[in-house]
Amino acid sequence: MILSPFSHSYVFNVEFRIIDIFELRNMPKIVLRHISKNILKDVNLEIMDKELLVLVGPNGAGKSTLLNIMAGLTDYRGEIFFDDKKMDDIPPHKRGVGYLFQDLALFPHLNVYSNIAYGLNVQGYPEKVIKKRVEALLDALHIGGLRERHTCNLSGGEKQRVAIARALAPFQKILLLDEPMSGLDPQTSKYLRTELCALLKRLEITSVFVVHDLLGAEEMADRIAIIHKGQIEQLSAPNDIFFSPRTDIVSEFIGMPNILNCDYCNILSIGLVEVVSGDMSIILPYEGSSIKKLAIPPHDIYIRYKTTWTCAEPL
């Protein structure tokens, strides 16, 4: 195995130096303190105003439970604040949290229009406001033609659009999305996701998007939180997740399963550092902090079958 010193080697335990722009610009919209429930153990999380946070983790990591807790659909220990207002005793229908479920659950006894209008109706908005809002959403999601259709004979993509419109209709400022595109083919899912993210930004909605893999997450996320076995392993901007994974689990999750424990480091004079791990010695750019672990992406490893190596020989 040969490592080129200029390949993208990733360094653990580097202090998180980039100050999050959201922390400067906004106040936290949602604050979770010491949340515990089943697998979730003492979760603390701050979600900024107007942020799109992607919550990623394997099945059974506690992602959906965390969303249900925020929506108030399940009991929990800990504290939740929305805009500094304590939410723990507020029932779900008064929390003002939209929720797009994985199984959509469009009301089968209502047509598309009434499904979207449902939230506005039960909250007692006047008929004029309801009509205007629903028409705007039908337009925004390009489903104006489905207005009178029954929900049971819509295609998968159309159902998604109706469910999105229904969740957005009652002017909620927080939207929770639980793997909403998982039932669609990759192409439809990609387009719809892009559209949805643009819509969320336009409407300035704080959203928590749960997915089970990172595919496409970095495009839409302001920040990504990796959750594993009920613990938040890392919460940072997409680039930092990919270039500075902070734990073995995050590293493995982003597809870098080769993790080396470093025995010791020699700082070289030319801005490089030599890291020794077992029989191997690897030269890396020196960033000013000690290196304890090293993750190497599989695509940066070259394998040669000849026993000797000279630089003159082409790869």
Partner: peptide, 24 residues
Amino acid sequence: RYEEVAKTLGASPSKTFFNVTLPL
């Protein structure tokens, strides 16, 4: 799930019962 959806859309438990559970 239908009742949970209704609640997140702002329907009180009684409205959820009359608007969702009963018709379904």
